[in-house]
Write a protein that binds this DNA or RNA. Structure first.
Lengths: 219, 219
DNA sequence: AATCCTATGACACAACTAAGTCACAAGTTC
DNA sequence: GAACTTGTGACTTAGTTGTGTCATAGGATT
């Protein structure tokens, strides 16, 4: 379960947010002023911080400076229309902002999007006896390092993140290569072939005819 | 692959959205007025609908009423700052809204978030001892994987989604093949035959003479 | 009930399309 | 420039799908 810190001096707003995020399955802590917020950040690790700019005592920007070295993603809560605030916040390292008054659905969407973005970075992925370290970009199978090229690695990650899902060729291509797929070359096929060989995954990477590929089995 | 319907009268906006969603791996259909939108909803099943409130002829709210019983999730596209619109939309059953002009990234994030939330619900179909996983595109009967081709799979889904309903040949054909039916070939019959064989569904798929087929029984 | 007409079942096969394989050239990195 | 990565085209192999033919069954008409 992911933990979210809400730093917001208006208790009504803070609690409204909390109720809704808890309902979505997050664990939430509220701090009603910057100092308390800083204390929490010191003591615990959070997956995400929602930070009001206008705070008594310590303001949001200072707190942001404080959070930055830790690397926790931050969403700024800013007053309506205050564009310079947003820009300042983003420059200082906030990952996103949301304008008050906001609909709770919008907040949740942003929280989810940001957590998903960050989630990808610090993770290790595993599939059967294959372990993928996203940070060092290394892959081990049964403990032995398997050398993969950049494209092979990206493709593997995409497959493992969607194990047991039939992935359309177009989608795979677009995710790994970042551009539209024109189905007249053998690029994707070749890379699949290389992955299958290097990992001995002749069966695990199943061809779904006229669709794409599916990584089958695993944990 | 998930299908999204975009109902938006400004073609430029509709197409912009489409291009971006297609790049993300979705299949998109655009309707430039409410009536066309209603037609599509009638004919096809979508995973998500993006719906502009301000539409010629039928407005967004009416269309929403129309979609509600089907249960497809809806994201409203509303004009800037029109708070009462948003609230009305949410009350009427929209699952989220986004304010124009929007950043395309935000739209995508919301689409993904919503599909993920809903995806947990709608991704498996069952009929008797047959389980259909829409995501991995696999079919199991009594636990054993049954290999189906694309057309067979699509046809099966159509039948199961309308179990105990007599489906006209024309309708089946148009749903699965996406084109008009000219009743002088054995195409549909052959595929029905293949399904019956692979699933041992000689009785379950009942022929309705001069009409089409009906999947009978099940849970 | 006998007859006729049409719809569907069964089947085999041809046409088509997709994917596998491979070798190599162009591009990158060290 | 050596070693490696990557994309591509030619070719091969394989899987899918539509179609015609013929057999059979269903329903209508008399």
């Amino acid at each position: 379960m992911q933990k979210i810190l809400i730093v917001e001096d208006e208790k009504a707003i803070a609690n409204l947010i909390k109720i809704n995020l808890v309902a979505e399955g997050y664990r939430c802590t509220c701090a009603y002023d910057g100092e308390t917020g800083a204390d929490y950040i010191e003591k615990e690790t959070f997956d995400l911080i929602l930070l009001d700019i206008m705070l008594p005592e310590i303001n949001g920007y200072e707190l942001l400076e404080y959070v930055k070295p830790i690397g926790t993603p931050v969403i700024f809560l800013t007053a309506k229309g205050n564009v310079s605030d947003r820009i300042k916040g983003l420059k200082l390292g906030a990952d996103d902002y949301i304008v008050k008054p906001f609909q709770i659905g919008e907040l949740i969407a942003r929280v989810e999007a940001l957590l998903r973005r960050y989630g990808k970075i610090n993770k290790k992925l595993t599939f059967a006896d294959v372990e993928i370290d996203m940070v060092s970009r290394t892959v081990r199978k049964a403990g032995n390092i398997i050398d993969l090229t950049v494209k092979e690695f990206d493709l593997l990650v995409e497959l493992v993140q969607n194990k047991n899902v039939a992935l359309y060729r177009e989608r795979l291509y677009e995710k790994v290569w970042g551009e539209a797929y024109m189905g007249d070359t053998r690029t994707l096929d070749s890379h699949i072939q290389r992955l299958r060989r290097k990992l001995n995954w002749e069966k695990e990477i199943k061809t779904v005819f006229r669709v794409g590929y599916r990584l089958e089995g695993g944990a």
